[in-house]
C-alpha cells in the first residue's frame, strides 16, 4: 500500500470514527441518554448548591467565608461553571429536539384524554424545564453577576468577590423576589420528582429490587430541595435571618 493511500484511508477511518462516536445521538434513545447524564450533573449540583446555601443559617461569617473560599480556588469555580454550562446547554438542545419530535408524533390530540398511570410531574417536564431555564438566567443576573440586584455588595471589591450573606438578605427582603424563588423551587421539585429516577431508566438501569427505592429517593430529594431552598427566603421574610 502506498503512503498516500494509507493516509487517505486513515483520514477516512477517522471521519468514520467521529460519526460512530456521535452516531448514538441520532436516535431519541441517544438524545435521552444525553438528557439523563446532563440532568444527573444538574441534580447533583442543585443538591450541593442547596447545602452550601443553607450556611446562611450559620451567620454572615461562615457564609461569606464559604463564598471567599470558592473565589480563592479559581480552578474549582471555573471548572464547575464550565461543566455546568455545557451540561445545561446540551440538556436544553436535546430537550428542544426531543420535544419537537414528540409534538410531531401526535399531530392530532384526543377530544378526551384521561391519565391512567403517570404522575403530574412527569407529564409537565416540558413546562417545568423551560420555566427553570428562565429562572436560571434571572438567578445568575441576580445573585451571581448582580445586574438584577438593586443593592449588590462585594466583600472584596478589588477582586470582585461578592458578599453572599448581605446579598441574600437584601434580595429576599423583597417579597416579590422571594415569591419568584419559591415558585421556581416548586418547578424544580416537580422536575426532579420525575427526572431523578427517569434518568436511570433512560440509561437502561431498571431492576425490580432497586427501582422502587430509586423512585422514593427521587421523591425525597425533590421535597428536600423544595423545603431546604424555600427555607432561606422564608427565614429572611420572617426576620429570622437578617
Amino acid at each position: 500500500m502506498s503512503v498516500g493511500s494509507a493516509a487517505r484511508s486513515a483520514a477516512g477511518a477517522r471521519s468514520a470514527e467521529t460519526s460512530k462516536l456521535l452516531g448514538f445521538y441520532h436516535s431519541p434513545v441517544g438524545k435521552k441518554a444525553v438528557m439523563a447524564v446532563t440532568g444527573l450533573i444538574g441534580a447533583g449540583f442543585v443538591i450541593g448548591h442547596m447545602l452550601g446555601n443553607l450556611q446562611v443559617f450559620l451567620g454572615p461569617e461562615v457564609m461569606n467565608a464559604y463564598g471567599m473560599k470558592l473565589h480563592e480556588t479559581p480552578p474549582l469555580l471555573y471548572g464547575a461553571r464550565t461543566v455546568l454550562l455545557i451540561a445545561v446547554a446540551l440538556h436544553i438542545i436535546a430537550a428542544v429536539q426531543l420535544t419537537r419530535m414528540n409534538v410531531q408524533a401526535r399531530p392530532k390530540g384526543y377530544a378526551k384524554w384521561t391519565p391512567a398511570g403517570s404522575s403530574y410531574a412527569s407529564r409537565t417536564m416540558r413546562v417545568s424545564g423551560p420555566l427553570l431555564a428562565l429562572f436560571i438566567v434571572y438567578h445568575l443576573l441576580h445573585f451571581t453577576s448582580g445586574v438584577a440586584h438593586p443593592n449588590f455588595r462585594y466583600q472584596d471589591a478589588l477582586h470582585k468577590v461578592p458578599a453572599p450573606y448581605e446579598n441574600v438578605v437584601a434580595g429576599f427582603a423583597n417579597p416579590v423576589v422571594s415569591l419568584v424563588y419559591i415558585v421556581a423551587m416548586i418547578l424544580l421539585m416537580l422536575h426532579i420528582h420525575h427526572g431523578a429516577w427517569s434518568l436511570f431508566q433512560s440509561l437502561g438501569l431498571n431492576h425490580p429490587r432497586y427501582t422502587p427505592a430509586l423512585r422514593s429517593l427521587a421523591r425525597a430529594a425533590s421535597y428536600a430541595l423544595l423545603i431546604g431552598n424555600c427555607a432561606i427566603p422564608l427565614a429572611v421574610l420572617a426576620g429570622v435571618v437578617k
Binding site: 431519541p28 414528540n102 408524533a105 404522575s119 412527569s122 417536564m125 431508566q201 433512560s202
Partner: peptide
C-alpha cells in the same frame, strides 16, 4: 424514529 413515533419520557402511561 423513522416511522415518526416520539421519544420515551418514562412517564408510564
Amino acid at each position: 424514529a423513522i416511522e415518526g413515533f416520539g421519544a420515551c419520557g418514562n412517564i408510564g402511561e
